[in-house]
Simulated scan of single mutants.
Amino acid sequence: MNAWVQIAVGLGASYLAATLAESIQHRVVGHAGARRRRFWARHPRLCGFLLRAHYRHAVVHHGLTFARDHVTQFLDEADKARVDAVIGRRGDPLIERERYGLTVGVRAFLTFGAAVWPLVPGLYWAIGPCAALAALPAPLAAPLLSMFVHPYLHLPHREALRRAPRPVACLLRTSYFRAVARHHYLHHVYPRFNFNLLMGGDWLLRTHRRPSPEDLRAMEAIDVPTD
């Protein structure tokens, strides 16, 4: 098979796998329902890490922080102290290390990649070496976005452009990442929708939600891109 065809197949297949995996993992773990959490709680040695991941995301990032609006993590120092008192009982140092859900650590490359990396040798044997090489970046994309871009999605857009490192600021100016900012804002308003930062999977899985006129007005009020 032609090398350029291999590259196209590798890029396309790995992007598709990565965006679907991100959407599914975010929904199934980060926003797990009560029944699933009860099952995990009955098997703490096997599933304890899933309960902890759910708590960090759904409880801390979606519940205890950003209570006022999408761009205000804590109201003031007293509010932060209140949150610290709650999470202190969990004994989970990753909560503070990952800035209360704003970013992720290296572990995300392992947990996310476990669902996508097996595709790479499969492409090598089925399509060819160029396909396998072209597939390498996509499994890294979602955790990199969570690590380096997600924190700036929770700032007013103009402030994010001022504060972000230049490569991230350049990304935030693009139409793609302005759409990501809208998409992610809606996820916090409607937590059963819009799980992707690596766009695409939510459309395919029918978990994408478009903003209403009221949503757009609310976004404009806190400087989230609306176009």
Results as ranks from 00 to 15, higher is better:
150 H>W: 08
141 A>Q: 04
149 V>R: 02
180 V>Q: 00
178 R>G: 11
151 P>L: 00
146 S>W: 06
166 R>C: 10
150 H>Y: 15
160 A>R: 11
140 L>Y: 06
142 A>K: 01
158 R>H: 15
170 C>Q: 12
173 R>G: 07
158 R>M: 14
171 L>H: 14
180 V>P: 01
178 R>E: 11
137 P>V: 05
160 A>F: 09
172 L>W: 05
166 R>M: 03
149 V>D: 02
171 L>F: 06
147 M>R: 15
178 R>P: 01
140 L>W: 04
158 R>F: 00
154 H>Q: 06
141 A>D: 10
161 L>R: 15
152 Y>D: 02
168 V>F: 02
149 V>M: 02
162 R>I: 11
156 P>V: 07
161 L>T: 13
148 F>H: 13
140 L>Q: 08
163 R>C: 00
151 P>N: 03
139 P>K: 00
143 P>F: 01
148 F>T: 12
150 H>S: 14
153 L>F: 09
158 R>V: 04
146 S>C: 04
162 R>N: 13
160 A>V: 07
167 P>F: 11
180 V>H: 00
183 H>G: 00
145 L>V: 07
149 V>Y: 01
173 R>A: 12
168 V>T: 07
142 A>T: 04
162 R>C: 10
176 Y>L: 07
181 A>P: 14
142 A>F: 08
145 L>C: 05
142 A>Y: 02
173 R>T: 04
139 P>C: 12
141 A>C: 07
153 L>N: 00
171 L>K: 13
171 L>T: 12
166 R>F: 10
141 A>M: 15
184 H>F: 03
179 A>Q: 10
139 P>N: 08
168 V>W: 01
151 P>I: 06
158 R>K: 15
156 P>Q: 14
167 P>A: 12
138 A>C: 13
163 R>K: 06
184 H>K: 11
141 A>F: 06
151 P>Y: 02
153 L>G: 00
150 H>P: 05
164 A>R: 10
184 H>S: 04
165 P>K: 04
139 P>V: 13
141 A>E: 06
151 P>Q: 12
170 C>I: 07
164 A>E: 11
165 P>N: 10
156 P>K: 10
168 V>Q: 03
182 R>V: 08
149 V>T: 04
160 A>Q: 04
169 A>M: 02
179 A>S: 13
177 F>G: 01
165 P>S: 02
142 A>I: 00
149 V>F: 02
166 R>H: 07
169 A>Y: 01
138 A>T: 11
171 L>P: 14
139 P>E: 06
160 A>S: 06
182 R>G: 12
144 L>D: 05
169 A>L: 09
172 L>A: 01
181 A>F: 12
176 Y>H: 09
170 C>S: 11
161 L>H: 14
164 A>T: 09
168 V>R: 05
151 P>A: 00
181 A>M: 11
152 Y>C: 05
143 P>L: 00
143 P>H: 09
176 Y>T: 01
150 H>A: 03
151 P>M: 01
157 H>M: 05
166 R>G: 03
142 A>E: 01
